[in-house]
């Protein structure tokens, strides 16, 4: 896109990453502890209040899987090492 930069935001609404992050936190199940304003300081990236549940990122992953056309991967154990009988039990050193 050459003229993309100049055209961008000349129409339609702007994208606000901060609002996006806020919405994501809610979606991931942020447990907001108490009043936000108190701790919400820029130095901490505004990330001190509340905590995310353990499965927060799994929750987001499950919802956003449909955005990805990722190929599933094949995993196996047989064939990942040489098929040699276990060496007779003796130590080299």
């Amino acid at each position: 896109g050459k003229e993309k930069a100049s055209q961008l935001f000349s129409e339609g609404c702007a994208f606000d990453p901060t609002a996006f992050a806020e919405h994501l936190l809610s979606f991931m199940g942020l447990n907001r502890l108490e009043e936000e304003e108190e701790n919400d300081e820029l130095q901490n990236g505004g990330g001190v209040d509340g905590f995310l549940p353990k499965d927060a990122w799994h929750r987001l992953a499950r919802r956003t899987e449909c955005c990805f056309k990722t190929a599933p991967t094949f995993h196996y154990m047989m064939g990942s090492f040489y098929a040699e009988p276990p060496p007779p039990k003796q130590k080299s050193d």
């Binding site: 094949f74 995993h75 047989m78 064939g79 990942s80 040489y82």
Partner: peptide, 21 residues
């Protein structure tokens, strides 16, 4: 779903390191 071969290619798998195997 299983792998049925043991070759130089199948041994290239990187799920586990050699000492782990």
């Amino acid at each position: 779903l299983v792998n049925t071969a043991e070759t130089d290619i199948t041994r290239m798998t990187s799920d586990y390191a050699d000492n782990e195997l």
